[in-house]
Design a binder for these strands. Structure first.
Lengths: 198, 198
DNA sequence: TAGAAAGTCTAACAGTGTTAGGTCCGGCTC
DNA sequence: GAGCCGGACCTAACACTGTTAGACTTTCTA
């Protein structure tokens, strides 16, 4: 085993530990407590070490954003195991808001404006794609011809985000609101755009 | 004219000028450029003067939040002059998103978490109340019996906020999304909860 | 006109992200 | 094995931030 590969492994390990430490601070104490020096202290290094792994704080934040969206996507997929397509929709919506309530600071960072906005949007995309699949299945099941599925998807995503962000206290009420909003939207679409029913 | 009243007037004047300078910096250069020293420079004072008018930066920010919501409320009221209740709804929704597109940084600060969250919510309330009135008029006009009008109001407000925040580029598309979302929600509510039609 | 009061500024403190410079230690070459 | 070399690491610093203390200057009052 060459020493260089061991070093590479150690390096990768430190990289990961920094991300985990940052995530821990963010979730436990909020974005205000998330400083480079604090993270460095938590991984038992000095501050400049962080810059050997990330170009700057924004790059590290983006890593947290990506991590958060992977986590969210996993939860949404889990909720989407439901057989019935209507209940599946409802559960996914509730799951989104529950996630936001359980990880308020992470959710905040996941949607906060950041320097490299393109990169952030790339992190969000898979979750939105999952929602689009779900929406496609839903519209097929009900014979609804959505004029613009992408637009419909954005509407639901935006609605969930807005409701989850508004009342970031009381996750139960927020869940209820989201379910209700989704129900109304879908009912509206079913009512107005019925495909030649077969 | 006693000197004390003149001083009080000058003081109030400076107070206002600080707010206006802060607003100007925020709208023109974003929240990152909004520093105490920058504001002080713009009103041709040194930094500590700001603290003779506001307890801290958060207090000043809250003033901007309040100002922003007064501005938004005025715009919403203007859009609500429309006679037809359906078009009124649509125009108010479009106006919200247009406002967010025209004042992206202000809109961001208006909805960003702040130290005194109660105070912020107090600033938002009048605009939400206006929306509730509008919604009441709408449901009355269509004989729709909303199970929980407050909840319905929060749903719409959250939806508008979410959609306006998502695509903070391309205000036209965002407007379209908001109108479409509102249309679907209202149609859903009309479909499911018809009051004994008279 | 002397003293009190109000207004303002400079300088500093503690904290932030970030970088430069030096130190030390492990591994490679002769 | 001795010496060098490169990478890893830390301390110290820079330019900022919000915020406060203390001195100075101007203005009003008695």
């Amino acid at each position: 085993m060459p020493a260089s590969t061991r070093r590479a492994r150690e390096r990768a390990n430190t990289h990961q530990r920094i991300i985990e430490a940052a995530l821990h601070v963010l979730e436990d104490e909020g974005v205000a407590a998330l400083t480079i020096r604090r993270i460095a202290t938590d991984v038992e290094y000095s501050a400049p070490i962080v810059y050997r792994h990330f170009a700057n704080k924004d790059a590290l934040l983006l890593e947290l954003v990506a991590h958060g969206h992977r986590l969210l996507l996993a939860e949404l997929r889990h909720a989407a195991q439901e057989r019935d397509v209507d209940r599946r929709m409802k559960r996914v919506a509730a799951e989104y808001v529950r996630f936001a309530g359980e990880h308020p600071h992470l959710h905040q960072v996941m949607n906060a404006p950041v320097a490299d906005e393109d990169e952030r949007r790339r992190a969000v995309e898979p979750a939105i794609a999952a929602l689009r699949d779900l929406l496609t299945a839903w519209s097929a099941a009900h014979g609804v011809d959505l004029a613009d599925p992408d637009q419909a998807c954005e509407i639901i995503w935006g609605t969930l985000y807005g409701i989850a962000s508004l009342g970031h206290t009381g996750t139960d009420r927020a869940c209820h609101l989201a379910e209700e909003a989704l129900r109304a939207i879908l009912l509206g679409w079913r009512t107005e755009a019925p495909r030649d029913s077969g």
